[in-house]
Nucleic acid binder design. Structure first.
Lengths: 94, 94
DNA sequence: TAAAGTAGTTTATAATATAAACCAAAATTT
DNA sequence: AAATTTTGGTTTATATTATAAACTACTTTA
């Protein structure tokens, strides 16, 4: 039977962010923005959602005097991603 | 680079319908409703969207005097599904 | 023949995604 | 050195989407 897909991950931009974060130790806002080809506003909102869900950790610091936002996937995020992929397979593997 | 996901397919209910239709010759409205665990209203709307996109064909007939809605995936729908899955793999494989 | 069930559609509302507008500071241009 | 543009974002408004509620039309059952 088809399993429900975590609505937090079933969003192109949030899924893209999570996918990218899985492959790195941590990532900067601007890098994610470039890689996902998203607008800063949209990315900012979606990062907040992932952060509130505990799927990522967002650290806001300064690089000299410029703001620097760094993101890192959490254990919970990795688990959620894996579950999502497993459920998704029910849809796409016939 | 992450490819865009067809927004028509990147919806749990519509993806579920397409997935189910791939495995059968054709399917009745009530069967899809049961399998996807959706409400009739939601299913009706989403079938319309898939139909308008040419991803499925919807045939409305009568079973005796009861309405009977039958759905069938189209070639275009199969292609769109395959493309969607391929693009999705960029997000979930690694 | 009244009530309940079937098979849907239409419309209204809630949720979501996205874009536009904005902010503060830094770097660049004139 | 004052004005303009760029960087790195956030906030807010709007458009899109999903979902639920209400409705239609007909049928079956009590």
């Amino acid at each position: 039977m088809l399993k429900d897909l975590d609505p937090l991950l079933h969003s192109q931009l949030r899924l893209g962010v999570m996918s990218l974060l899985l492959g790195v130790d941590s990532a900067e806002f601007t890098w994610l923005k470039e890689k996902t080809n998203s607008t800063a506003g949209n990315l900012s909102v979606q990062l907040d959602k992932l952060s509130e869900a505990g799927y990522i950790e967002v650290e806001k610091s300064f690089n000299g005097k410029k703001p620097l936002t760094t993101c890192k996937i959490t254990k919970k995020g990795i688990k959620a991603f894996e579950d999502y992929v497993n459920n998704l397979k029910g849809y796409i593997n016939n």
